[in-house]
Computed example of a mutant assay.
Amino acid sequence: MTATRNRNSRQARGKPRKQPRRKVKQVSIFDKILRAMPVTEAQVQKGLTWGLVAVFILGAYSVAHYSGINERIKTEVAEAVGKAGFEVKRVEVTGVNRIDELKVYEITLAQKDRSMLLVDIDEVREDLMANGWIKDARISRRLPDTLVVDIIEREPVAVWQNQGQLSLIDKTGYPLEQISKEEMPDLPVIVGKKANLKFTQLDALLDVAPALRPMVTGATWIGNRRWDLEFDSGETLALPEGEETASAALLNFARMDGVNRLLGRGVVHFDLRDAERAYLRMPPKPAPAEPDSDGPEI
């Protein structure tokens, strides 16, 4: 029995002892991403915390906005400011030349709320821009009680005649206001349907012949395709179609007039529509006077 126990103990000593298995710690993808980022885990957690706070604040603001709380607070603050003396009492207008300054005052002071904070600057500007003479308007607040209105007016450069109606237009062709024949200013007259929309083209055309520009008193837009120019000496110049072709023809006419003095020589009409030759029309000759039947006999 003793021998058997000793043999078993020797066998146990000769057999290697089994080591317990270690558990391998699994690393999640999120942990790998955090380790790859150039920030610490504490910084990431701090950023997430502030992000949640920001979302909460934004949500609270949205709720207040859609429930009308913000507007009520804004209105009450603005009314308090107005009662404290910050109420619109004066309007300063600059840049007005042709339009009625009183009309600008009326539009500016038409706001329901006179508190400096409640005056809708954009709405005032929109109402002013409805006036055809106003090209631009800038409105600003000057505390404690003044609105400053800076007006940029449109400049009339021609009279547009269409279907018997006369209108002043600016250099873009924008109609400013209708006028009567008695109110006609000393400006060129352009005639024709939609001729006002072609005024920028006419202006560029006259730039090629600056010596002739002061002599041009009017222009007629013919068939929605070409111009007839009228001069202060009574002649009419028919130009061809196309901007480049018309410019070349006008430049050639200006050169000929500079050499031979074509204008003021009794010609009624110059026709340059043909690229090969120019045509002239002279005034009709007066009919010979008939002898007086009741005159004395010779």
Rank of each mutant, 00 (worst) to 15 (best):
L263A: 00
L166R: 07
D207W: 03
M282W: 15
N224I: 04
N6S: 15
A42Y: 05
R7S: 14
G173E: 03
I134L: 06
Q45R: 15
R21G: 12
A287S: 11
Q161D: 09
L147Y: 07
R273E: 05
A195K: 01
G132S: 14
I57L: 12
D136Q: 12
T200N: 09
D127V: 09
K194Y: 10
D127N: 12
H65P: 03
I57C: 08
I33V: 14
W160S: 06
A249G: 03
K135I: 05
E71Q: 14
K181I: 06
Q161E: 14
D186H: 11
E126A: 15
Q11E: 13
S180T: 15
I169A: 07
S9I: 12
K15S: 00
F199I: 13
I134E: 04
P38F: 09
V259T: 15
F231V: 06
L102R: 10
L280V: 11
W133F: 07
L197V: 10
K83C: 00
T220M: 09
L58N: 04
F199E: 00
V189E: 05
Y61S: 12
Y66V: 12
V39C: 09
M256R: 15
K46A: 15
E276Q: 14
V91H: 05
I298A: 10
L187V: 01
S28Y: 04
T108D: 02
F231N: 07
L251H: 15
E79D: 15
T200V: 14
G14K: 13
A12Y: 01
I169M: 02
E153A: 02
V189F: 00
V157W: 04
L262N: 06
M37D: 05
Q201R: 13
W227A: 05
R142I: 08
L143V: 07
A64C: 12
L262R: 07
R277H: 10
R21H: 12
N252Q: 14
K18Y: 00
I190N: 07
L229S: 03
A211S: 15
G51N: 08
A289W: 02
R10G: 09
L117S: 07
G218C: 04
V191N: 11
W133R: 12
E276A: 13
A249K: 08
P175L: 04
P286N: 08
V216I: 10
D122M: 08
D292C: 01
K103T: 11
S62I: 12
K193A: 11
V44K: 12
K74T: 13
V44Q: 09
P188K: 02
S67N: 10
A42C: 04
A110C: 02
Q163L: 10
D100K: 12
K112H: 09
D228N: 13
I69E: 06
A209Y: 03
I57D: 00
Q45D: 14
Y279M: 13
P210A: 07
T200G: 09
R114C: 05
R226L: 03
P210V: 04
F253Y: 03
Q201I: 13
K46D: 15
P185G: 04
V119H: 06
